[in-house]
């Protein structure tokens, strides 16, 4: 049965008719056509679907769209400035070659931004632990860890 869900996505209010069984990620990808949020697994391990909900990184494949009623959601499409300038965390991923195929990248960046808000100058170990819920098969994490460290410091500096 179709039900209505209303929320804010990337600063814009949206309302959509969804089946009750619709996942948040399905709403984002299929209905809102924000395809930067990806699905890489079905057991909530890979984190490619990570978005920010009310300021916290969550896995949009692990919640129903209905659970996001009234929420403020940000996807990777909403991270850069409107003029296209990359967010400091995005810029750090680019500078440090923190991405290869790009598929896990949006989830990595969304998680990293939330993490960096709480850890302005994170240690290597803190970063690695923070990536417990994000899988990457390309980079070996080496440059992702470097990028997140640099991105967090850049975020802190730009405050």
């Amino acid at each position: 049965m179709a039900v209505k869900v209303s929320l804010k996505v990337n600063g814009k209010s949206v309302s959509a008719e969804v089946e009750e069984r619709t996942l948040l990620v399905t709403l984002i990808r299929e209905q809102l056509r924000l395809t930067g949020t990806h699905v890489g697994c079905d057991t909530a391990q890979c984190g490619a679907c990570t978005v920010s909900m009310n300021g916290m990184a969550v896995k949009s494949c692990s919640m129903l769209a209905m659970q996001a009623e009234g929420a403020d959601v940000m996807t990777i499409e909403g991270v850069a400035k409107p003029d296209g300038t990359l967010h400091p965390m995005q810029a750090a991923f680019k500078e440090h070659h923190g991405l290869q195929c790009g598929f896990c990248t949006p989830g990595m960046v969304m998680n990293a931004i939330d993490f960096a808000k709480h850890h302005p100058n994170p240690s290597e170990q803190e970063i690695r632990e923070a990536l417990e819920g994000n899988l990457c098969r390309c980079t070996g994490y080496h440059n992702i860890v470097k990028a997140i460290g640099a991105g967090a410091r850049a975020m802190a500096a730009s405050k």
Binding site: G47, A57, V58
Partner: peptide, 9 residues
């Protein structure tokens, strides 16, 4: 528990 995204929910 889990990972930081799981802990948020």
């Amino acid at each position: 528990i889990g990972d930081r995204q799981v802990r948020a929910m």
